[in-house]
């Protein structure tokens, strides 16, 4: 464990909590892509099956359980509790365009052709594109509430910190996980455009981030 990975995991946790609290306190999920949240719950569900097969550390187990619980709670709030505020007209990204290539690629490119490894690889590739429905929804509505942008900021920060973690681990431990690194870099690139908008609009105190 290194400071970059710890900070990345904390940033990821903060993002998830920001979104969950926003939905719970405003009792509304307007502007939130339920599809992205379902994809994230799927990412955690397919990646954390090793909870039952290997013990890495207490931290690892606790964080996995927390991420699973919070992501399912978020999906529950969107599609059950506050479903009447769910903006289905704008949450129209065709997730099958993400799932089919990701499933295909995880069968082609993996470390071992075993169910757990293929599911792990699937979760890595899926996480890289899981935010697309949310970013698509923002471009469609042309704006995002500032809380939603903070959520996206911390998600992007988590990815950037993980890249720093991989640089650190490569130099300190000779560790290099090619699938995670390639997929993680692609995922981080998707946030770059958002980061620019976040800094130039949200941090300038405009409140909402409205796209040009």
């Amino acid at each position: 464990m290194n400071i970059f990975r710890l900070a990345g995991d904390v940033s990821h946790l903060v993002a998830i909590i920001i979104l969950l609290l926003k939905i719970w306190r405003s009792k509304s999920c307007a502007g939130i892509s339920g599809k992205s949240q379902v994809l994230f719950a799927l990412v955690f569900s397919t990646r954390y099956l090793d909870l039952f097969t290997v013990f890495v550390s207490v931290y690892n187990v606790v964080m996995k359980v927390v991420f699973l619980a919070l992501s399912y709670a978020t999906v529950y709030l969107i599609y059950m509790r506050f479903r009447n505020s769910y903006d289905s007209e704008n949450d129209t990204f065709r997730v099958e365009f993400l799932l089919v290539p990701v499933i295909g690629l995880s069968f082609l490119e993996n470390y071992a052709f075993t169910p757990l490894e293929i599911l792990w690889t699937f979760s890595i590739f899926l996480e890289a594109v899981a935010i697309m429905p949310q970013l698509f929804m923002i471009t469609k509505t042309g704006e995002a509430e500032s809380i939603t942008t903070h959520y996206l900021f911390f998600l992007g920060l988590y990815r950037a910190l993980y890249i720093a973690n991989w640089v650190w681990r490569y130099h300190m431990e000779g560790f290099f996980d090619q699938i995670a690194v390639v997929s993680g870099v692609v995922q981080t690139i998707f946030y770059c455009d958002f980061f620019y908008l976040y800094v130039t609009r949200v941090l300038r105190g405009k409140g909402k981030m409205s796209l040009p």
Partner: peptide
């Protein structure tokens, strides 16, 4: 297959 079968990252 390449190494990295035990995944210790979240």
């Amino acid at each position: 297959e390449r190494e990295q079968a035990n995944h210790d990252e979240l």
